[in-house]
Design a binder for these strands. Sequence first.
DNA 1: CGAGTGTTTGACCTCTCTCAAGCAATGTGG
DNA 2: CCACATTGCTTGAGAGAGGTCAAACACTCG
Lengths: 248, 248
Amino acid sequence: MLDEETQAVPRDCGDCPIRHRAVCARCEADELELLDHIKYYRSFEAGQTVIWAGDKMDFVGSVVSGIATLTQTMEDGRTQMVGLLLPSDFVGRPGRDEAAYDVIATSDMVMCCFRKKPFEELMSRTPHIAQRLLEMTLDELDAAREWMLVLGRKTAREKIASLLSIIARRDAALKLSKPTGSMVFDLPLTREAMADYLGLTLETVSRQISALKKDGVIHLEGKRHITVPDFERLLDEAGDDSDGGMLA
Amino acid sequence: MLDEETQAVPRDCGDCPIRHRAVCARCEADELELLDHIKYYRSFEAGQTVIWAGDKMDFVGSVVSGIATLTQTMEDGRTQMVGLLLPSDFVGRPGRDEAAYDVIATSDMVMCCFRKKPFEELMSRTPHIAQRLLEMTLDELDAAREWMLVLGRKTAREKIASLLSIIARRDAALKLSKPTGSMVFDLPLTREAMADYLGLTLETVSRQISALKKDGVIHLEGKRHITVPDFERLLDEAGDDSDGGMLA
DNA sequence: CGAGTGTTTGACCTCTCTCAAGCAATGTGG
DNA sequence: CCACATTGCTTGAGAGAGGTCAAACACTCG
């Protein structure tokens, strides 16, 4: 099941695929070198737990490749995803000792980690890191607020369409193409994970995907491979006024 | 309806009621003086709109007194509150020209504003401001994620109990007391605003408040004045495992 | 007094959940 | 190679939580 490409670890920061988007994006060569001294890579297999909520967390880091989720669980087992971590996204919080949420790798994943203490010290001396982290956190806050509208006010069908448009948009961004017209991509989430993302049950997710397929909004090959013939139509189904919901 | 105390404008930063919690919390005397040069106060009456989503926003600022809401609206009129702005909370985003959400004063309110350009310049030269803003943004992100669990997975009754516990907790914090046992406070929101906060209709909000009252979880005097005889019981109704949901 | 706003309550309906059965793909051990 | 788990997904039937529509109450203000 190991994907060679996904699991590849960059040799040094210059080669790093997230060099221009991660916390280190604004760093100069000398700053990068300082970071280089305290960084190390960790690989996770699909399904593996990176950390449990409440556990002591002595590192922070960036997702280099693969996907992870941030989830919250109630005593009775109800769970809500509160973050979807894609390459370049930051994990952990400077100044906090314990993880606030469960972090789970949903695909094989590589993280670029920094021991928390040295990172915090470096951050206080390197404005470029703090600046970038602020920018990223503000973006995440925007994404969370967009998500709140989805959770609070959209119908099941709109929720699914919203999620698909978010994934399609991100996928287009990776390929450096504009999200319009016909698009093809793979779902990085199981039906259950989609349900946890959207505050639905997996049965409702399945039903609504079937409905969107029946109505020609999407085509399915297998369970995960999706074709969107008309992206504008999808946005319409999501209830978004063309600009749409953006994900960090 | 004007509340003299609420509308009072601090003479200078030393007297400011939010001095120790706002963006300026970490600033030294000299930094405070720089801020003082670019700050000005604005007052809003209850119900007044501070800014509409999409409008050009040439300032940022802090809520000094009173309460405001951040809301998002879909074309068909469905609205979702995505932020509740209490004294010391920050409004606006450095590096962005347009407001992303509607900001509405729900009570008489005073803001301490800074023109955006000078503030951004000052921020790049004053790490203390950027540090504090990062800290506040991370707190807001945590609050947003707690809120996502409420929106996505809680029942109407749990949602109401969650909101009441958040307000009770914040109120206790203002009075520097611990949230336990018996508590008394006023609701700062209309039933409709509570509905927009929780992703419900105002009828459901009303019904669930009546139910909580009937079951003795809360007592009502008038529409807004609430007594919680047993805070632990309220947390239990909210489905929180004692630590509960915290608001920035 | 009447208008307006915020709230409560009732009756009904619908969307989503719950429970249940079954399918497809993959893997495992005999 | 074949039973048979296991996991992820689909589909159906029935139930229930919350929404919708409607009426009426309480309070404030002119």
